[in-house]
Design a protein around this nucleic acid. Structure first.
Length: 473
RNA sequence: GGCCCCAUCGUCUAAUGGUUAGGACAUCAGGUUUUCAUCCUGGUAACAGGGGUUCAAUUCCCCUUGGGGUCACCA
């Protein structure tokens, strides 16, 4: 059996991280089984069309390394197929016309809510006479086609949860074809998955309660029932379904913040699944190898930003300075940071292990470019005083002034020079290094002074120390 | 509320009818360091509760509790 999976988002204009995982698992499974991964756009809601959404989606999927093998299939271009199927059901008596107005349905629902009755369509239109029906159709009255749910129970097997049985009494006479002639999700998904020979439907847990409708449709059409795998939800910290209100949900948001595609893939892959449990970092090919539908968890997983940060740092550290600078370029441009390439390279070299996101490099570059105002008291080492700091600054100024540019280009030589000064004067490290570092960085916390001297070079270093001296007067 | 699903450290997870219940993130402590970060070492921290089944249950069954999802001419 040739495995076919599909990713079938509605074109909202962005890719939800939950959808990313759905797409990822579908992709991994297809690749592992040497099957096909299809992209299908479920754009049957005309009220929610977003221009450019399809292109954006494909672009994001591609940057995430999940390009579809086939598609995109666009449901709005396949309306005739759905209509045909709806009418086939009509003829068999498995579906019926409904002329109820929105107002009536709303009133019905309100009444059911008030009396705590099950919220279902009351089948009023199932019983309209043949003549009345024909008259209404002839008069072009707005109508929909509803599925006539048969009596009995529906059982299906979910690859993750096992058998699930639902009484058909719980299932509503779902609208199949809307007034505007577009299908609803339920009709379109069944028709398309069959038409595209989809073998494994991998999607979010929120769909599980509508599977009976689909199974009933499969049976009515005489279609082979595919395998279902409903993924546990990705959750907010409060355990509710991951939502915009509680932070970013779009993959594009995370990319824009400077998280790497491979981080996002790795992170999201481990939400609800762990191939070996003794490791957190997996290469994409390993995920393909190790992916196992039966090992997917049943319960929802909280999206933990702290772990995402850690993981992005890990991935960043595997990259070279040149790679990071290339990746960070869009961020620098966006922040309008114009910086000498050599200077940036040195900054990146030193800051590399401190970066969480690519955005961080841009932020740091800005900080190195311009010394911000600081409290002069910061220049003074906790075990010393202003006079001591001043004395060292003056000495260091003279010392550094006489150093060659070659020495300034070498971190270890720079360190040796300063250490020698400390040694010869029998000073304490902190008395010299703290003020020097503080003067160079203007911050309480920063890389060490040797690294800072190296980053800034002679001219800027002297300038900053000089500035510190002026502050101590 | 009806229906459906779920339940191991704060979080992501592993394992097992008999284990000191393992790992990672976070957190705490220590080491390295002038500070920060990195790195290293160590610590705190979990089987929701109650019944069964069993020689033995975290593991199997039931109930309770808790959480979530879903109940549209949206997907």
């Amino acid at each position: 059996m040739n495995v076919v999976t599909r990713f079938a988002p509605s074109p909202t204009g962005y890719l939800h991280v939950g959808s990313l995982r759905t797409a990822l698992y579908s992709y991994l499974y297809a690749k592992q089984q040497k099957g096909t991964f299809i992209l299908r756009i479920e754009d049957t809601d005309q009220a929610r069309l977003v221009p450019g959404a399809v292109e954006a989606l494909i672009s994001t999927l591609t940057t995430m390394g999940l390009p579809p093998d086939k598609g995109p299939y666009i449901q709005s271009e396949r309306l005739e197929l759905y209509r045909e199927h709806a009418h086939r059901l009509l003829e068999k008596g498995d579906a019926y016309y409904c002329f109820c107005t929105k107002e009536r349905l709303l009133a019905l629902r309100e009444e059911q809510q008030a009396t705590k009755a099950p919220m279902k369509y009351d089948r009023a239109c199932l019983h309209v006479s043949q003549e009345e029906k024909e008259a209404k159709l002839a008069a072009n009255e707005p109508h929909v086609i509803r599925l006539l749910i048969p009596e009995g129970k529906t059982t299906f097997t979910d690859e993750i949860r096992g058998d699930i049985t639902i009484d058909n009494k719980e299932v509503d006479d779902q609208v199949l074809l809307k007034t505007d002639g577009f299908p609803t999700y339920h009709l379109a998904v069944v028709v398309d998955d069959n038409d595209m020979n989809v073998t494994h439907i991998i999607r979010g847990d929120e769909w599980i309660s509508s599977v009976p409708k689909h199974v009933i449709l499969y049976n009515m059409f005489g279609f082979a029932i595919p395998k279902f795998a409903h993924l546990p939800l990705i959750l907010n910290p409060d355990k509710s379904k991951l939502s915009k209100r509680q932070g970013d949900v779009a993959v594009e948001d995370y990319l824009a913040k400077g998280y790497l595609p491979e981080t996002l893939i790795n992170f999201v892959a481990l939400l609800g699944f762990n191939p070996t449990a003794d490791r957190e970092i997996y290469a994409f090919d390993e995920l393909i190898q190790l992916f196992d539908l039966s090992k997917i968890n049943k319960s929802g997983a909280v999206f933990d930003h702290a772990k995402l940060d850690w993981m992005n740092g890990m991935y960043l550290r595997t990259k070279s300075v040149a790679e990071i600078i290339t990746l960070a370029k869009p961020f620098l441009e966006k922040a309008q940071v114009s910086i000498d390439p050599e200077f940036l390279t040195r900054i990146c070299e030193i800051e590399k292990d401190r970066l969480i996101t690519l955005q961080d490099l841009s932020d740091r570059a800005l900080e190195y470019l311009q010394l911000s105002a600081y409290d002069p008291a910061m220049l003074i080492w906790k075990k010393a005083d202003a006079a001591d700091a001043h004395m060292h600054f003056v000495a260091l100024l003279e010392l550094l002034e006489n150093i060659t540019d070659e020495t300034f280009a070498d971190r270890t030589l720079l360190e040796a020079v300063v250490k020698k000064y400390i040694e010869e004067g029998s000073f304490q490290n902190g008395n010299v290094l703290w003020p020097l570092r503080a003067a160079l960085s203007g911050k309480e916390k920063s890389p060490n002074p040797f690294e800072l001297l190296w980053i800034f070079g002679k001219q800027e270093s002297l300038k900053r120390i000089d500035h510190a001296v002026s502050l101590l007067k």
